[in-house]
Amino acid sequence: MKTLWRHHRWWLTPTLLIMPAAILFSVVILASSVESLWISLHEWDGFGPMRWIGLDNYRELFNDPQFYVSLKNNVIWLVMFMLAPPLGLAIALLVNQKIRGMRFLKSLFFIPLVLASVAVGVVFSWVYTPQFGLLAIIFRFFGATAPAVLSDEHFVTFAVVTAALWPQTAFCMVLYLAGLNNLSEDLIGAGRVDGAKGWNMLRHIVLPQLTQVTFIAIAVTVVGALRSFDIISVMTSGGPFGSSSVLAYQMFEQSIFSYRFGYGAAIASVLFVIMAVFIVWYLSRIIRAEERGA
């Protein structure tokens, strides 16, 4: 037995070491994700037996006006979230100065990033509160009356995304600050010698060195936009009348509140397909980078 172990430990040890993580991850995360695709082909209330209905859930979904509202909101989230990288870069450029006290100010800028999104949701609910909220105060200062943004179906999604942009911008700022600290001093110096300044310097010398950071910033921002759930749940519960819902929230609502697990799974599957396009693009990029490095 001992010699058997001695002979095989060179491959047995690594196998045993990776097993716990691999098994747990495949059962809980990967298998569950695949199972959802299966469930989406059934009618199921979460308790009783599942009934095979083929693609009926999808047929129903594509005729459901709420689905298009959610989808449209997902697009709004994606587009508006793309403000996070440039805003983050702007703040990063602002605070990237070596002045006494700047380090502390910098870390205060990071705070929204570590707040729970539920907390961010509550904070902005308070900001948007009619009459008393920060927004109302500001409008009053200019002699206007703030709309009740969270109960107005035209404003609500924009208001919620604005709240979500707050931590997302901080995230991008952290990434860009790290990138700015890794700029090649020689290249910057060469640029200065060649007379590059301000915008030209940023455009032609700094940004090209931040390509990798920008890639990561956009990646985390896309994932963040498609994952949006917490803030919507806390601020509006998808309302008013589903006007601020997104696919993630609609899925949750259909499953947990309406006990339509099959239908929920179908919505999740659509979201998954959208995300999968992105994941495949992302993975192919990092695997290619990985193989170049190896």
Partner: peptide, 23 residues
């Protein structure tokens, strides 16, 4: 295996919600 770990990490939570809850 590496790609599965990384890719799985980007999945929308909703796609695994029902089976995990059921599990």
């Amino acid at each position: 295996v590496f790609a599965l770990f990384v890719g799985g990490n980007f999945l929308p939570h909703q796609i695994m919600m029902i089976p995990v809850r059921d599990l």
